[in-house]
Amino acid sequence: MANMPARRLLIVDDDALVRSLLRDLLSPTGCELLEAANGADALERYRLHRPHMVLLDLMMPQQSGLEALEAIRALDANARVLVISSLDAESLRKSAAAAGAIGYVVKPFHPMEVLDAVQRALAALP
């Protein structure tokens, strides 16, 4: 991402394998990558680091992704959150959008799908 300023991304998924896949995929972009394994940790990291974008799983232990999404948006109304979930239903996509998600990617995902979505979100940043 040589033509863009450095960006910070927060990857939130309880699944270490998925975090690892996303880290491998996004590392070459030059973005700073942060990770969280649950909603509470995600909120804390968001508060501390103010990432430019969050990639968020929906089903996680204790605090669900939707709760984390609502909490992050309550903290920062401009937060850009991309949902990446194995669950897929139009009504759930609408719920995520209503809670403030900027996009929804269904697992399993293609690398270009995630890169395209991240690129679109970051391109809109000032």
Partner: peptide
């Protein structure tokens, strides 16, 4: 509703329609 799976993961809060759609899709 919040639903908790056998592996401890949680989805919610969602309306009945979401649960109905996900159940119909076998998810």
């Amino acid at each position: 509703y919040w639903v908790r799976n056998e592996d401890g993961t949680v989805l919610g809060p969602v309306g009945l329609m979401v649960i109905k759609d996900l159940a119909a899709a076998g998810q």
